[in-house]
Structure formats: C-alpha cells, structure tokens
Write a protein that binds this DNA or RNA. Structure first.
Length: 285
DNA sequence: CAGCCAGTCTGCATCTATGC
DNA sequence: GCATAGATGCAGACTGGCTG
C-alpha cells in the first residue's frame, strides 16, 4: 500500500459472511464457498459509450458524467470485490487489509476513482409514485412494467437523440448497472425522483451516494450490492505498483485524475495477480 | 393482522472470452 | 478442446416493510 492510509495492524475483522438471509440457512463446512452473485457490470456501459454520438456524450457531460463515457476497464475481477466486502469495517467505514493498512470508503475516494459529481444536493434515490407515473410512460411508452436492465440498455443503444429521454435512460442505466446495482434484474423505481430533476444531476452528491450505498450494503452483509467498479479500481489504484511487471501489457496505467480513465482490465489483472495471497485473499502489495 | 410488493436468494441455463 | 469466469436470463421461494 503506497499512500492514503495509516499503517495499523488490525486483524479483528474476522466475521464470516452471513448468507441466505431469505432462508436463514448457512451451509456449514463448504470451504469453497460459492461466488457471490451480483448484477453489477460496466461492460454494457462501455459497449454503449463506444457507439454514442458526440452529442450524446455531451448530454452525459451536462450531467457531470463525462468520466463514465470513457471507462477503459471493461470487466470486473469479482474475487477482489468479494474480498473487499468481507474486510470492510462498518464502524470506521474503512477496508482493513490485514497487516497492511486501511483504505477509507468515503466521498473523496469515490471521487478519485470515478470522478462523478460531488455537489451539494442529496441524490434523491427513493420511491415516489407521482414522479414515477409521470415519467414511466415517457421512457417506456409501450411497456406495463419496468424492463430488465439489459432491455433498458438495448433501448438506450437504439437511441439517436440526446435529449431528456436519453439522459433519463442513461442515468437509469448508470444507477442500476454501475452506481448502485442490487441483485434485481430490473432497475429500481427509486431512480425516478432523480430523473425528474435532470437539471440538478450535476449538483447532486453522487460520491456520497455511492459511498453510502456501499456502506449500507456491507453493513448489512450484502456483499453483492453497490459499485464494484469503484471497489476494484479504488483498491488497485492505492497499491504500491513499483514491483508490478507491466511490460506484457504495454506499461503501467498513465498518470490520471480519475482511476476510471486510466486502468484497463489487463492492468488491473496484472496488479491483482501480484497482489493475490490465495484464491480469495489479496493484500500482498 | 393480512395482503401486497420490492428486494433477496438459489438452482439451472446460455453465451463469450480467456487461459491451460 | 476443455475448464473457468463473467455477464445475463428465468422460475420460484422467501422476507421485511408498509398499508389497509
């Protein structure tokens, strides 16, 4: 670990993940615990942005989301995200890497990773029937109920305009696939109040929203929710890279303002391969 | 308290990319 | 070619919070 942390050994984070909230069961003795299923992925976003017109990217920039229009890392490395969830300390809001140090989960760390707006308005991610009833027909005129997240992405891909409908669908996709994914196949209807206030999206505190969403999820041991892109990039971006061999992938990530603009999946993999202790544990660097 | 509903969890499945 | 992992899908069971 290179910077941004105080070196305190602290190994008292050993809380095995509690699963199966729905059934209350937890199989004993399954040493090879199954991977946590999640619905987060920025892959579709990178495919979409690749085809966006300049006007459409401009519309995203008007909402302060320009950094997300060029995500270089297309995939996730899920084991490291699972691991970070398990070593998270809700009380101090820090990731405690055994024997290495701590990484905070806060607005600043999210800003450094993703470069999303850090305004003064709270992100209104909440249910609101009136706003939903007004906006839903605008977004999905032929549908009765919320489409799957992938179907929303399909409709986004088919769009050639860059007006409010485009902005709303893009925001909804960002929220449900990258910023605040849940285990659901569909976007949450808590998105609507955000979409209803497009002008203020760039003035909302997305950094706090993402950090709080992850914090709340991990506090209730929901390790599959939240922004995995931030988790992964925040971690690799904080490590000491001096011993990592980047020659096979054309050199280390360039200096950058936001991690999301610099890291490629191959760079992430090279670092994590060097950092891995066992299959499911990291923290060597 | 009963019913509703959004969200969670599991098993099973398909497709693709990557590495051995 | 085969195994593995990531992304995505569907059906069905369940839970916790809200509301009448």
């Amino acid at each position: 670990m290179a910077h941004g942390d105080h070196q305190i050994d602290d190994d008292d984070f050993m809380n095995p993940p509690q699963r199966n909230r729905a059934t209350g069961q937890r199989k004993e003795g399954d040493e090879k615990k199954k991977r946590i299923r999640n619905r987060a992925s920025q892959e579709r976003l990178t495919v979409l942005t690749d085809k966006f017109t300049n006007d459409q990217k401009g519309a995203a920039a008007e909402m302060g989301m320009q950094a997300l229009m060029d995500v270089r890392c297309m995939n996730l490395v899920n084991p490291v995200c699972d691991w970070l969830g398990e070593i998270y300390h809700p009380a101090s809001r820090e990731f405690v890497i055994p024997g290495r140090g701590r990484l905070p989960l806060n607005e600043k760390s999210v800003f450094c990773t993703l470069g999303v707006p850090r305004g003064h308005i709270k992100v209104p991610y909440e249910l609101n029937n009136e706003k939903e009833e007004v906006l839903f027909p605008c977004l999905f005129p032929s549908l009765e109920s919320m489409p799957n997240t992938s179907a929303l992405a399909d409709s986004l891909q088919a769009m050639t305009t860059h007006g409010d409908v485009f902005k709303m669908k893009l925001l909804m996709h960002l929220i449900s696939a990258v910023f605040a994914p849940t285990t659901s196949l569909r976007p949450s209807n808590k998105c609507f109040p955000i979409l209803a206030d497009l002008k203020n999206v760039k003035n909302m505190n997305w950094c706090k929203f993402l950090a709080d969403f992850l914090h709340n999820a991990f506090s209730s041991k929901m390790y599959q929710k939240g922004c995995r892109l931030h988790l992964m990039l925040m971690y690799v971006d904080c490590l000491d890279l001096s011993t990592v061999d980047f020659t096979r992938i054309g050199g280390p990530p360039p200096t950058h303002k936001f991690a999301v603009s610099a890291w490629t999946i191959n760079a992430v993999k090279a670092v994590l391969a060097a950092d891995r202790v066992t299959d499911a544990k990291y923290g060597k660097l």
